[in-house]
Design a protein around this nucleic acid. Structure first.
Lengths: 183, 183
DNA sequence: CCCGGTTGTGCAACTAGTTGCATAAAGGCT
DNA sequence: AGCCTTTATGCAACTAGTTGCACAACCGGG
């Protein structure tokens, strides 16, 4: 129930075509709401028939031809409604923690390398976030928009920090396990 | 691709019926891999036809009659294979961060109450985890199994700690925003 | 001028997860 | 006996997300 609102948010920030949206999802928005280009095109179609967005008047649409969208007042209203509405946190699923628990009963053989790989991925992501923070949020600028966006980025930074620390700790524990033996 | 392995893990730990599994998913395993009873019954059926699990020989199955499953050697092997296999982290989606970003463009009106509610939920969850830690992992016991399971619990504790801190900080920022005005 | 890569849009089929409901047995209650 | 609640299993239909592929336009180089 959130993809359309992710798209609306992106389009309010800046009118875009499907492919541009896809790229923006790969970068910033996708850090906490990922989507493939197929999902995006399908949703753009729906949002248009629902009257929340429209193609920019200047362009004439044809297959293989760029088609940019902008948000209509109804779309902005729907986004505001959704943002303010109370929502329960969605159930969350993490493969790595699940594997760890499985490893507790079937043995840790083979998992350590992947932990290292994940640690590396999280460290890279963390570095990328910190780069963005340095570039986009220098001290001093503090409009409401900046503060809120910075807050979201901080969540990303803190989460990646958590993962790097947890994985480091996990690898340390592994080193102490008596020869990676089974339970 | 992970639900069957979550179920296998649970069944290796202790043979159970569908409903018992559902309850266990609501408590411990569901903290990082939630599932409804429908998903579980469907998956139990699949796992049985694939030869990974079987009904406990003692029971005769009938509709409305309890039916417990245990893991067969093939199931344990599959679980070990999956645990050791390299896997990319799955894309992760968080509604609250998305709403925060939307709030940056359509205004923060109405979201604050829900932030407080989420803060409360995360504090409760954190308290529950800490209770479990005190009960199940007193200092001293440190078999490999205990260490791994404790590590998983620590992840839960640290994640909830992150959320409570982040939400607290977010609410502080809100208090400082000039009258919750729009961008 | 046509050939291959890039940009851009999109369909179809699939897998995973959710929601709503049906059904049956067992136990307590009056 | 008749009824209500709890325990337990399961189907069907839906929504959300993924994967694989097709196709059109455009742009550059030989």
């Amino acid at each position: 129930m959130s993809l359309p609102h992710a798209i609306l948010t992106a389009l309010v920030e800046k009118p875009s075509s499907g492919l541009e949206l896809t790229r923006r999802f790969d970068r910033s928005i996708g850090y906490f709401w990922s989507a493939t280009h197929q999902q995006i095109y399908r949703e753009l179609g729906k949002l248009e028939t629902e009257g929340f967005i429209r193609t920019l008047p200047s362009e004439q649409p044809a297959r293989g031809q760029k088609k940019s969208y902008e948000v209509l007042p109804a779309g902005r209203a729907e986004l505001a409604r959704w943002t303010a509405a109370s929502q329960d946190p969605r159930p969350h699923r993490d493969t790595l923690l699940l594997r760890m628990r499985a490893a507790a009963v079937v043995g840790t053989e083979g998992i350590e390398g992947d932990l290292r790989r994940h640690l590396d991925l999280h460290q890279r992501q963390l570095a990328e976030y910190e780069e963005i923070e340095k570039r986009d949020f220098p001290p001093g600028r503090d409009s409401s928009q900046d503060r809120l966006r910075h807050l979201v980025l901080r969540a990303g930074i803190d989460l990646e920090t958590f993962w790097t620390q947890w994985l480091t700790r996990a690898l340390e524990e592994f080193a102490e396990l008596p020869g990676n033996e089974r339970a």
